[in-house]
């Protein structure tokens, strides 16, 4: 249906727009290969690329390479994503489809927990986790994801589930399916795009969450990538080349995951046999 000209102009627009958004990557790649003295220059590309920014950065710590820190972070992320996606779906289904006492009240509480700035709960929380003996482990970072994955994701999934027509549930109910069956067999497959969204955001946001990581992790062998990166920055002395090189590497997992998780957005739910 689309004409060739329309297609071309689509691509042209998207390419220009993408390049505009990608400007930082280009700048970043160039900067990561520069010598410190060259960073002040307006040129994008260095005169001679300093590949050793990458090799030195990778091996900066005497005891571990960045591979170790990537491993740590991915392990932590595995827990976060698994816990977050599954429990957020459970909780969201409860809030959006089931009727129970005080439902509105609990939902209100859920939303309220998002509105208090984290800066004032971080200290009591640290004291709590410290008493439980969880400091310098991943428990304080991972465990919260297993309790519904946070209000943001619960609310997000609630909105998606409420967008699904109730006829499907009703039909299943008549067939004798329990609420649990409805959740696993009907709702879960239908909200797949939203679940992928939750997974991606959980991944990216916990990768970024430096404040929590610096507080709870103190041994180098447990360092995440985010913590390792901060080792390049001190009060006066910043290892710019290595910092830029390693932080560029540090975002690649997120980029790859985003790139591959996309097909789930594309595959809408139209194919799942909804009657019009």
């Amino acid at each position: 249906m689309t004409t060739l000209r329309g297609k071309l102009s689509n691509h042209l627009f998207l390419t220009v727009f993408s390049l505009l958004m990608l400007y930082p990557v280009i700048w970043w790649v160039g900067a990561s290969l520069k010598k410190t003295v060259e960073l002040g220059l307006p040129t994008i590309w260095p005169s001679t690329p300093m590949w050793e920014n990458y090799s030195k950065g990778w091996h900066f710590s005497g005891d571990y390479t960045f591979a170790h820190f990537f491993g740590n972070t991915l392990l932590m992320e595995l827990g976060n994503v698994a816990g977050g996606v599954f429990t957020a779906a459970l909780v969201a289904y409860g809030f959006s489809r089931l009727q129970f006492k005080l439902r509105a009240f609990w939902f209100l509480i859920l939303l309220l927990t998002m509105m208090l700035p984290g800066q004032v709960t971080v200290v009591p929380q640290y004291i709590l986790f410290n008493k439980l003996g969880w400091v310098d482990s991943y428990v304080p970072l991972v465990l919260p994801h297993f309790f519904g994955g946070g209000a943001f994701f619960v609310f997000l999934l609630v909105q998606f589930i409420r967008g699904i027509p109730r006829d499907l549930d009703e039909a299943a109910k008549i067939d004798g399916t329990s609420v649990y069956g409805i959740f696993f067999r009907i709702i879960l497959p239908l909200i797949k795009p939203a679940l992928v969204t939750v997974a991606i955001f959980t991944f990216i946001w916990s990768w970024d969450d430096f404040f929590a990581q610096v507080l709870y992790i103190s041994s180098v062998d447990k360092f995440t990538v985010g913590l390792a990166l901060r080792m390049f920055i001190d009060q006066f002395d910043i290892q710019w080349g290595q910092l830029l090189a390693m932080s560029l590497l540090s975002i690649t997992p997120s980029v790859i995951i985003f790139l591959f998780a996309q097909k789930y957005f594309v595959e809408g739910i139209a194919t799942t046999g909804l009657k019009g």
């Binding site: 005891d63 392990l75 932590m76 595995l78 827990g79 698994a82 816990g83 599954f86 429990t87 459970l90 410290n130 439980l132 003996g133 969880w134 400091v135 310098d136 482990s137 991943y138 428990v139 970072l141 991972v142 465990l143 994801h145 297993f146 041994s219 180098v220 062998d221 447990k222």
Partner: peptide, 30 residues
């Protein structure tokens, strides 16, 4: 069961090292 299991894996996952926290007994590293 599943929820508990997930919670349990979270703990064991994370306690990878010597998870005995801030205590002065957690002699660490090299």
């Amino acid at each position: 069961g599943l929820t508990l299991l997930l919670a349990a894996t979270a703990c064991s996952n994370s306690g990878g090292g010597n998870g005995n926290g801030n205590g002065n007994d957690g002699g660490s590293g090299n």
